[in-house]
Amino acid sequence: MTLPMKILAGAVRHAILLTTGSLVLAPFVWMVSLSLKPPAELFSSSFTLLPQHWFAVENYARALTEAPLPRYMLNGVIVCAAILLLQIMICAPAAYALAKVRFAGRQVMFGFVLIGLLIPHQVLALPLFILCYGLGIFNTYAALIFPFVVSPFGIFLFRQFFMSIPDDIVHAARLDGLSELSIVWRIMLPMSLPAVLAFSIVSVVSHWNDLFWPLLVVRSQEFMPPSLGIVTFANAEAGNDYGPLMAGATVVVAPLVISFLAAQRWFIEGLTAGSIK
């Protein structure tokens, strides 16, 4: 290729990618833009990105006070943290047993993990709903957390990683006097940090964003996680008062977007691995 051709090709590449990129980002830009504008400007047909009169403070204040948005966010943090912690506590030892301990029934057990991996959560919603009702945890944090405390994907991912750790390391640890459980915490998990990180991202992203399950088991705003919260807020704001609503959406989306920008590579690797289960 000649030099001018190269420059032309590069220009075309950037032109196309910038166009598709701005189309992809348009909803985000529009969201932030509306969240800054006063109601009057929403209806003006001359659209601008930035408002003529800044209304950001009012919109965000209304979003944070009228709807219990901080509460939703706190719920999201509590639920995601509890789920992730329990998942790791339950899945890592199981994955270690499947990868490094020889016991009768290991294959059968791995078969159950694979079956669990196969079943989409929505299919199980009904019996789990009944289970939560039966346990009396309907409309509590427990209902949001309990169905997810074991993650077949987590077991699968950790098992893959643990299997790649040489047996000699496990043997050395046993000789050094570590119990099986301390081998998991002190040796296996620290050696599998990429897997832990990838799994944490998958877990937090999917539960922060989940709507289906919270919609079923949570009725009071007190326990609503962010996604359900913002939908409830939208339904309450029946009018076209988009300012506070978009401010709310921005607040809900922001934590993950900021984390994503900070740790792009990990997010992409983690979420890709997560969808390849």
């Binding site: 040489p166 000699d168 050395a172 640890a173």
Partner: peptide, 9 residues
């Protein structure tokens, strides 16, 4: 051990 089996972390 042949592979030394040192804990890398």
């Amino acid at each position: 051990f042949q592979s030394y089996a040192l804990y890398p972390h």
